[in-house]
Design a protein around this nucleic acid. Structure first.
Lengths: 211, 211, 211, 211
DNA sequence: AATGAATGAGGCTTCATTCAT
DNA sequence: CATGAATGAAGCCTCATTCAT
């Protein structure tokens, strides 16, 4: 994805600069009206240098998005390893709350990053990161429901991930959701339904196998 | 919203043409890379005509989004009037299934429409349309639970609407989630929980009144 | 110049309406950013009607300019016939003062009308109107200097007309000229020089003829 | 005024190119019907480069006008330093003749430049350049009449400058006025009157001081 | 590598003019 | 004739990208 993998510290610094600049810009400006020149200016480097390391502004946004995904995956893994013994519901609620807080403090930035996903087809690396996140969720569910089929658990995990994301984004858009913990209430409802559905599907499958 | 309210039938036709063209374009192209000229071309009208009625492509998308909301409200109303006698759960499932199908057959179009919501603050008219949809849901719930307080019903309706939207969009962002009816299973779980909660509130209220 | 000479009262009314509208518009808007549609709107008629009577917005401005020239010529003629017996200097000062007042009350309008002159080559009719004005000035000078050659007088008249116009316009542009009668002082200086030059050329011609 | 102050020699060249191109265009085309693209094309640079340095064609014309003022000031200074010993009248006539010739060989260009003045309020820089020109005239007068009060001389210089401009523009609007040196004759009349007035003031002052 | 000036395709928008009603 | 919606050529301007220094 990077045109050139930075090997020297100077190059790494350059890339960090550009990404930091882009982050600052995307916090205030919709991606559509962001310009490469502006990113370069804010980053304190020249446009030429931006093109030294990135193919286009979409590439920059995508990189930023991948970093965000990687951070999220890491958060989930950390919480999972540190929370053994608690119920799946609790273990999955914690990172949600944290992500919610992160997003709220940088609404436009995250809207911009989401926009990247919506506009371009996800790359293999992006999909792999998403899978990593789903796997983390699935791991927690699997520890609570060891009897349930792995595929089934992965589906539930994927759905849960999706609506977590949707809820976070909804909370950024819809001001009525942005207070009194309404979003958390929704999350809890969906979470309960998610786990109940898991049980239901498990039972129906067992019945199907028996008959 | 429209720059000029069409007075002659010719104008109404013009607006329809433009919206139809925009629909066709947005089914294939992300809003960001859509151009006014392209919409005009596909619509078979001149750019000038587009600007006669719309300020920008965003305005067109917003109009389309409002039409979508209006269509959804109408669908709910139609189903409600045609399904008297059935259980609330069934009466609310039907339009969900239909909306789910609609969205999945036009994923990019609906992603584009959602993008409009995400980018701009909702207008009074948009909010009013959403309220209309909530009211339809509330009406169905109210017919099944005539004893329950209106405010209580409205709250449940609002929550149910949000869940539904969340699920539809989740299924849109990752279509693989709809294998094996996973989304529908989750909808059913949520729906049952929603109605159960309503019943619970009804009973507790009755108890409160008795004692 | 007019596409069609209005014969019926309705048509005349139409033309008056359009010119009145254009006048109102050009009082506030530079000709370059004036639009036919706006003129029509302010005039309270449809664009189509404007094109029924005028070829283009330039034609409208030109017509307005011609009316202004005709008015000026009429003013000069009136003052000339009513001021016999006074010195040429006084007789020519009076209309200047009046024109100065007129222009000051409608600065942008007159700037716009001048712009028409500067942009397009003057038509035969325009030139004829200007000649009419020059002739009025020449008549006054001729009455005071009956011995001087007619051609010489016409040249002086033309120059006087030109710098009168230039002074009026300068007074509109340069704020330092717009107070304490500075413009009038200039006019008087130029006027005196004009008349002196007339005498000087007369003498030099006489000398040339003699030798 | 310039969007960006050219730092590299390449940039200065660019700006010169654009101004040269604009000059060539404005010699043939009224500013109103001049386009940025056309200027760029004639200048042999891309539109983008034009916009890198100028906000609009008006800005370009304004720059050209300022250069013209600066050139005029320089001309006056040069003539003044090279003509010591001659009478003030002769020293001031020379640059007038030259400016007259310049303007007549580029009538439309100078009409366009004047148009800029008429359309926009004069900036501080423009006013400063005009003051510079007035100072040059005042310097010449001051050398001939060292006894006269500076303020008095400045007033005469300012008036003389205005007359000159008025005459030059008159001859531009109607070139036939320059047959037989009519404009020059008028200039001489005004010049004599101007200097006579100065002498008169000088004498009256001396008298005032004596008595 | 870094720089930043130069490029120019292409999007946006206006508005003079036409023409069906 | 009057109307005003429709047209589309043409100007404006931006900004992703290149490339000489």
């Amino acid at each position: 994805m990077l045109r050139k993998v930075p090997k020297q510290s100077r190059s790494e610094e350059m890339v960090s600069c550009i990404l930091a600049g882009a982050t600052r810009v995307l916090r205030r400006t919709p991606l559509a009206s962001t310009t490469t020149n502006h990113i370069a200016e804010v980053a304190g480097v020249s446009v030429g240098s931006v093109y030294q390391y990135f193919d286009s502004k979409e590439t920059i946004a995508t990189t930023l998005f991948r970093r965000h995904l990687a951070d999220s995956a890491q958060l989930l893994r950390r919480v999972r390893t540190e929370s053994r013994g608690y119920s799946a519901e609790k273990r999955l609620r914690m990172p949600f709350v944290e992500l919610l807080r992160d997003h709220r403090s940088d609404i436009m930035l995250h809207q911009n990053l989401m926009g990247v996903m919506e506009t371009s087809r996800p790359t293999a690396e992006t999909q792999s990161l998403i899978r990593e996140i789903t796997n983390e969720i699935a791991a927690v569910l699997g520890e609570e429901f060891p009897a349930i089929d792995q595929d089934e658990i992965k589906l539930c995990a994927a759905l849960r991930q999706r609506y977590s994301v949707t809820l976070v984004h909804s909370s950024m858009i819809d001001p009525t959701l942005d207070r009194d913990g309404v979003v958390l209430d929704h999350f809890d409802s969906l979470s309960k339904a998610n786990i109940k559905a898991l049980g239901a599907r498990a039972r129906s499958r067992r019945r199907a196998r028996v008959s």
